[in-house]
Design a protein around this nucleic acid. Structure first.
Length: 508
RNA sequence: CGGAGCGUAGCUCAGCCUGGUAGAGCAUUAGCUUUGGGAGCUAAGGGCCGUUGGUUCGAAUCCAGCCGCUCCGACCA
């Protein structure tokens, strides 16, 4: 069968790269690990940004912007933070170039007094501002978000999933009490869960990270974890309760209502362009990308079947009217995004381009449709009947009337499929480490998702040992899901009574 | 940074073993034909064969260094 992509999901890593390329999402750049995001990929990010920004503001946060460069001494203030990020930091040491022996090099005379690091995250520089902004308990809570780029010098970059430079939003908040800060941490985790499921149609499991997977400097880290079509987990967003660690390191204090001085409790939380990688690996198929309508830069693409004949004009004006009618409608709270594709290439070529890019509805209009008042359309979420493409012919008025409903159905359908896959692939009958090793250890070609099992929640050296054991199977603890049962079986690592259930899986 | 593989046209790759000045398919451009759907024919454009050096009369081909990419490790809120 002829597919729109020349590699299938059986070779998942190759398939992923093919989708990113053939769906016009992004490409590699001359800078190792840094990507060029192309218009279609950027369009997806803009939709993600716009909707998530609304939700962040709706929960009381305000946007602002902090510098890209952070003085080295700031990073050094929080001990765990330094240790966590030291190995992946880009550092600016000079402010001028000079030609020496015919080579353009950093001018030795222009060395910075104090090196600047390119932010890997902004806790320290935002914390510095917080220490000046917070004076009284009346200044709290301080609820700030910024949309920014950050740099982490990763060993093995992968487009969207782990790039040296990536785009994200990072929320930073300060509170009077630990209770309020924890509440904020969990509130934003829930914002991420709802956003991921309702907007990206990507089901996730929200929960708490084990101690050894915490954000450097955090008291607690929470995550949402999504299951990709190869069974691996993708950490799609994190929310951290930082306690007073950063406040103490950076002197973020306030005068309480009794007149005494208290350290703030702070939080931080973020999601990144990694979400786009998650969408690709959640919804893509062997014909390319399938975009949830809520984030598709174009939800409906109209392809006129032009043949360099006089009736072309009629087809075009028919299409223009169709686009106008559709554009006036509202889906997911926003005007419907429609494109009339008039590019001077073959119509069949256009169709396949939009299939690969994952436009939710592709409408084809030929002279016969125009004459009969019809449209022919394809649903990207339900593209084929066996090998054949499913083309549906409908009266134009009916299509326009039902278009929003169709988009809603596609959104719901993509979510339902992904949700069914997630639910069906969390194995709950593993009761020992040996059974775990047997399940993940042998590669029998079957789909391996995650295991959900009880554990004793060890810490320190004992937890390190558990981590090392899991590592031999390339496994990690993803999180302890928020919804826990009333009673637990025995810990699969120690055989002692369990205290919570955790998800175990391979991860990106 | 360690192990393996790869780098030839926009893309996918052949040629390399056995050195003699560059190929295919798709894509692009032009013309003609075709037209309810990823069309056909003809012609054209496009490559210092990743890079630097070595061996040689001669290197895409053999050798070495470097750079980059992919996979596996290490690393990875």
């Amino acid at each position: 069968m002829q597919r729109a992509l020349n590699v299938s999901r059986e070779r998942f890593a190759d398939w992923y790269q093919a989708v990113v390329r053939d769906a016009d999402m992004a490409e590699t750049s001359p800078v190792r690990g840094a990507m060029v995001i192309k218009p279609w990929g950027w369009g997806v990010w803009e939709q993600i940004q716009a909707e998530l920004d609304r939700r962040i503001k709706a929960t009381g946060h305000e946007n602002c912007y902090f510098p890209l460069f952070i003085p080295l001494s700031f990073i050094a203030k929080e001990a765990e933070h330094v240790e966590g990020f030291a190995k992946e930091m880009a550092v600016v040491t000079h402010h001028r170039l000079k030609t020496i022996d015919g080579k353009l090099v950093p001018d030795p005379e222009a060395k910075l007094e104090e090196p600047l690091v390119v932010r890997p995250t902004s806790e320290t520089i935002i914390g510095d501002a917080f220490s000046r902004w917070v004076r009284s308990h009346r200044d709290l809570p301080l609820l700030i978000n910024q949309w920014a780029n950050v740099v982490r010098w990763e060993m093995r970059p992968r487009l969207f999933l782990r790039t040296t430079e990536f785009l994200w939003q990072e929320g930073h908040t300060a509170h009077a009490t630990a209770g309020e800060a924890v509440e904020e941490t969990l509130k934003m985790l829930e914002v991420y869960r709802a956003f991921s499921e309702d907007v990206l149609a990507m089901p996730v499991i929200a929960g708490e990270k084990p101690e050894n997977e915490r954000f450097p400097g955090a008291v607690n880290t929470y995550s949402i974890e999504a299951m990709m079509q190869d069974g691996k987990a993708l950490q799609a967003g994190t929310s951290h309760f930082l306690g007073t660690h950063f406040a103490e390191a950076q002197n973020i204090k306030f005068q309480n209502d009794a007149g005494g001085m208290d350290f703030c409790n702070t939080t931080s939380w973020g999601v990144s362009t990694r979400l786009i990688g998650g969408v690709i690996m959640t919804h893509g198929d062997d014909d390319g990308l399938r975009l949830p309508p809520a984030i598709a830069p174009r939800q409906i693409v109209v392809v006129p079947m032009l043949r360099d004949k006089p009736e072309d004009a009629e087809v075009l004006s028919y299409c223009e009217n169709l686009v106008k009618a559709l554009s006036g409608m509202t889906a997911f709270g926003q005007p419907v995004r429609v494109l009339l594709d008039t590019k001077q290439i073959k119509s069949a070529e256009k169709r396949w381009n939009w299939v690969r890019r994952g436009a939710p509805l592709i409408v084809e209009v030929g002279p016969r449709d125009a004459a009969g008042g019809n449209v022919t359309y394809m649903r990207r979420d339900d593209l084929r009947d066996g090998d054949k493409i499913k083309s549906i012919v409908k009266p134009r008025v009916d299509f326009v009337e039902g278009a929003v409903q169709l988009l809603t159905e596609i959104q719901a359908g993509l979510y339902a499929d992904a949700k069914a896959r997630l639910d069906a692939n969390i194995k709950r009958d593993i009761t020992s480490f040996d059974a775990l090793a047997a399940y993940f250890g042998e590669d029998d070609g079957s789909f391996k998702g995650w295991v959900r099992a009880p554990w004793g929640k060890p810490s320190g050296a004992e937890l390190e040992a558990v981590g090392a054991k899991l590592k031999t199977l390339k496994l990690t603890i993803r999180n302890a899901p928020g919804d826990q049962p009333a009673e637990f079986g025995t810990c699969i690592f120690s055989g002692n009574p369990g205290v919570e259930e955790i998800l175990i899986g391979r991860a990106y």
